[in-house]
Simulated scan of single mutants.
Amino acid sequence: MAMRLPARLANVLLSVLLACACSPGSEQGTSPDAGRDTASGLVRLEAGFEGTLQLRGNMLRIHVTDTAGTPVEATRVSVSLWMPGHGHGAPAPAVTREARGDYLATVDFTMPGTWTVTIQVDTEGRSDTLELSVEAP
């Protein structure tokens, strides 16, 4: 026997679910640390994961610009993974260039937990880094 909710209660529940699903900050997989000037101030890095984080196959998008917002062609972009709570890393993902200033890495975590993802950008003979803290499921 199916149980029916009164229409009014069903509408309230649906409204609450939609509000939670659409509220700012509810999107998983993006990094709150993304989009800032690096320590040297040479470039601005924006980075974030697409969609919900998984253990394997996470797409990390990296955008490199100068301080005026013009895309920068880096001589090298690399990503390293470190799990501070366990004192170990994971294999470094390959980074591919998609367009001037745009790079993509497929990140695989070796286990669930908190990871530090360090993005290093080499340009004009200097290195800049951006660290993201992410929670792998």
Rank of each mutant, 00 (worst) to 15 (best):
S78H: 01
T114R: 15
A47T: 02
R97K: 15
F109C: 00
T30G: 10
R100W: 10
V117R: 02
V77M: 03
P71C: 03
L55Q: 07
D122N: 09
D128Q: 03
A68M: 15
P137N: 13
D66K: 02
Q120E: 14
D108E: 05
E98G: 01
G48Y: 05
V117K: 01
S133L: 15
L60N: 00
T129F: 08
E46Q: 13
T106A: 13
E46Y: 02
H86T: 14
G85W: 04
A19T: 09
L14E: 09
T67I: 06
R76I: 07
P84Q: 10
G85V: 04
T116V: 13
H63V: 02
R126T: 12
Q120T: 15
T116C: 01
I62F: 00
T110Q: 13
T114S: 13
M111K: 09
S26F: 14
S31R: 01
T75G: 04
V12L: 11
L55V: 03
M83E: 02
D102N: 14
Q28P: 02
S26P: 00
L55R: 02
L130C: 03
D66C: 08
F49T: 02
E46P: 00
V77I: 13
R36W: 05
L42Y: 03
M83I: 06
R126H: 08
S78T: 12
